[in-house]
Design a protein around this nucleic acid. Structure first.
Lengths: 155, 155
DNA sequence: CGAACACAGTTTACAACTAAACTAATCACT
DNA sequence: AGTGATTAGTTTAGTTGTAAACTGTGTTCG
C-alpha cells in the first residue's frame, strides 16, 4: 500500500466541511454587501450604524436603548455613543422614564429616514437580484432556521 | 372605492422584500457566529483577525500581503498592521521580493495554526448543526451564487 | 534613456465597536 | 421599610477596521 488515493491526515488539510464552506461564503457575502451599504450611506453623509439606528428607531418609536442594542446586535455601550452623536445632530431625542430612555425621531430624523430607507431597500434588492424569488425564500428559510438555533448570547 | 384592502403608501412601511428579510437574517447569523468565534479565539489569546491571517497564510505559504487582504476582505493597510503585530510576536515573517512581501509562518505560528484550526472548524460545524447536510449544501450553493454575482469592489 | 504611470506596502488620523467598571433606578422579599 | 440583587444607561480604555496620503519599486512607451 505504497500509494494511497487520498491522505486525509496529510499536511494538506482535509476537505473543509460544508459548514465551513458555507461560513466562508456567508462571510464574503456579508462583507461585500456591508461595504456596498457603507459606500451608499457615505454618499448621504451617514454611517451604517446611524442608518441602522434611524431605521430601527423610526420603525416603532419609543423603543428603549437596550431594545435597540439587541435588535442591532451591538452593545448597549455602543448604542449609547451613537445616540449621543445623533441626538447632538438633532436626528432624535431621548425621553427618560424611570431608568429607561425611550427614543423618538425628530422631524428631521423622520424625514431623513423616509428619504434613505427606500434607497437602502433598493440597493439590497439589487444586491440579491442574482437569486430568483424562490431562491431568496429558500435562503431566508435556511437563515431563519440557523438564526433561531443560535442562542442569543447569555449576557 | 372608499376602502382599500391594502394601503401600500401608508406610513406603516410596505412589507419588506424577501431580499431585505434575507439580508437582515444574514446579518444576524453573521454577527452571532462571529461573536462565538471571537469568544472562542479569545480563550486562546488570539483575535479573530490574527486567526484568519494565520489560517490563510498557513494554508499556502508565500502569499503576498495584497493577496491576504483580498482573501480576508480587509484593506491592505489593516493587513499591514496585523502583520506588524504577528511578526513582532514571532508567529510569521515577511520576506521581501521586489516591491512585494511574501508571508511565511514560523514554527511557532505553524504549531498554533495546527492547534486552532480544528477547534475553529469544530465550532463552525457545531454552529451549523441545526441544518441537515442537504440544507447546508443548499445554503452553500445559494451563497456561492450570490457571492459570484457581487463584483469585487473596483479598487 | 527617462517621464509618466501603476502598484505593493506603510503610515496616519479617525470611526466603530467591545469589555468592563461605574451610576443610578427598580424590584423582590423578609 | 430595608437590604440585596437586577437592570438601564454611561463612561473609559483599548482593539479593529477604514480611507487617504505617502514611499518606494517596477513597467510602459515615446
Amino acid at each position: 500500500m505504497a500509494e494511497t488515493i487520498a491522505t486525509p491526515t496529510d499536511e494538506a488539510a482535509n476537505a473543509p466541511s460544508s459548514a465551513v464552506l458555507a461560513w466562508l461564503r456567508l462571510m464574503r457575502v456579508y462583507h461585500k454587501i456591508d461595504k456596498r451599504s457603507a459606500d451608499l450611506m457615505r454618499e448621504h453623509k451617514l454611517s451604517v450604524s446611524r442608518f441602522d439606528v434611524l431605521n430601527h428607531a423610526g420603525y416603532r418609536e419609543g423603543r428603549t436603548q437596550q431594545e435597540l442594542a439587541d435588535a442591532l446586535m451591538v452593545t448597549k455601550g455602543n448604542i449609547c455613543q451613537v445616540l449621543d452623536g445623533m441626538e447632538a445632530d438633532k436626528l432624535l431625542y431621548r425621553r427618560r422614564s424611570g431608568r429607561t430612555n425611550h427614543i423618538y425621531l425628530t422631524d428631521e430624523g423622520r424625514e431623513l429616514r423616509a428619504q434613505l430607507v427606500p434607497i437602502q431597500e433598493e440597493a439590497i434588492d439589487q444586491a440579491f437580484s442574482a437569486l430568483t424569488g424562490d431562491e431568496q425564500e429558500t435562503l431566508l428559510g435556511l437563515l431563519r432556521k440557523l438564526d433561531r438555533s443560535l442562542l442569543t448570547s447569555t449576557k
